[in-house]
Amino acid sequence: MNLFINGQSVELSDSIKTVGSLLNYYGLGDKVVIVELNATILEKDTHQETAISDGDKLELVHFVGGG
């Protein structure tokens, strides 16, 4: 499956079927993340079940504390 994540084309395993599993794949599962899928921001509580498919465009921004 090919996705565009933060503007870059990424080839991922088809086993990643949802936004939740994608976040886990990137080690962001336990972080506060804002997800935009095809130009729409997702509500946080829908990350787990929202399906993703070939060609989707995602923007992922996670919050960090350092400064």
Binding site: N6, G7, E36, I41, E59, V61
Partner: peptide, 20 residues
């Protein structure tokens, strides 16, 4: 917009979060 970047991974993004 909420901007984020990763200088080492050459990543940059900006998203409009008004809807939140």
């Amino acid at each position: 917009k909420l901007v984020s970047f990763d200088l080492w991974k050459n990543d940059h993004t900006a998203i409009n979060v008004d809807s939140l």
